[in-house]
């Protein structure tokens, strides 16, 4: 007789399980529910030249770019929402220091959906005729639909090696609840080869209740769970804590200063 399922692990063990060259996707969106504690641990590791995927990137992407950790970035957005642009992302793009693949929101979700279904691509109309199909690195292709004959976009599957998603509450088996905006995370965890959660709280067993407005993630998609209280700060994790706006504005102003960024990484969440 074995004990109850327990997928808990410490943060450093999560990082140790990431092999060099593996792609990492982060959940959340902009300044909301970013897995900052995990990203700081990755920042402090020897991992480098990381292929990073972020549906709606924020300070997590900016931090890794600022430390020179990102090899190639796939994104539909990188920014600080209503508070402006991401400083290191901006600097790296304008100096040509980083390779990027630009998606729109719906095309990146289509890429995750194809990944989750283990299909080569998903057809869509989104993005048709716009600049995102015409960049040097664009993975999408147009094709004539075999059913209707119209021109459609084939969005190739994205299958991140590792997905890291911050949640409000998880249990030892890996079931989890997100109370704020779920963003692309329900699809991301199914597209990734391995998903790790960081959670404000880890409980023995999530209650069998209805959360009409919450997002549920099943243990079937989860490889490991790390307890990381305030692990999303300074981004907002509704309703556990709000955005630390003064800290975010300070990050935005100073994150291109390497010494400041090193101190930010060294600080506990």
């Amino acid at each position: 007789m074995t004990g109850p399922m327990d997928k808990r692990l410490p943060l450093n063990e999560l990082v140790a399980r990431i092999a060099p060259g593996q792609s990492i996707a982060f959940g959340g969106g902009g300044l909301q529910r970013k897995p900052m504690a995990a990203v700081k641990a990755i920042a402090a590791s020897a991992l480098t030249d990381i292929p990073v995927i972020s549906f709606l990137g924020g300070p997590e992407v900016d931090l890794l770019i600022g430390l020179g950790k990102v090899g190639r970035l796939s994104f539909a957005f990188v920014g600080f929402d209503a508070y402006g642009l991401a400083p290191n992302f901006r600097h790296a793009r304008e100096s040509g220091a980083i390779e990027v693949v630009e998606y729109s929101e719906a095309t990146m979700l289509a890429a995750f959906e194809a990944g989750a279904k283990r299909l080569p691509f998903i057809p869509t109309r989104f993005g048709l005729g716009t600049g995102i199909l015409a960049t040097r690195t664009a993975p999408m292709k147009t094709f004539a639909c075999p059913i209707s004959g119209e021109t459609l976009v084939a969005v190739p599957a994205l299958r991140p090696d590792i997905a890291i998603v911050h949640v409000n509450e998880a249990d030892r088996a890996g079931n989890a609840i997100i109370h704020g905006d779920g963003f692309g995370d329900p699809l991301l965890v199914r597209a990734a080869a391995k998903t790790y959660l960081t959670a404000e709280r880890v409980v023995d067993r999530l209650p069998a209740s209805h959360h009409r407005r919450s997002t549920f993630i099943s243990r079937m998609w989860v490889a490991g769970v790390v307890e990381a209280p305030r692990g999303g700060g300074p981004t907002v994790v509704y309703p556990d804590y709000g955005l630390d706006l003064p800290r975010v504005l300070e990050f935005q102003k100073r994150a291109t200063d390497r010494a400041w960024l090193d101190r930010f990484v060294a600080e506990a969440a």
Binding site: L56, F75, R90, E94, E102, S104, R125, L128, G131
Partner: peptide, 25 residues
């Protein structure tokens, strides 16, 4: 998305986000 060329922008903005999708919706 960008001011200037996409390959090496003069100003990198936030990326296309949902505009190419909203266009079709």
């Amino acid at each position: 998305s960008v001011v200037g060329s996409w390959d090496k922008p003069k100003v990198q903005l936030v990326g296309a986000r949902g505009v190419p999708d909203d266009l079709w919706g």
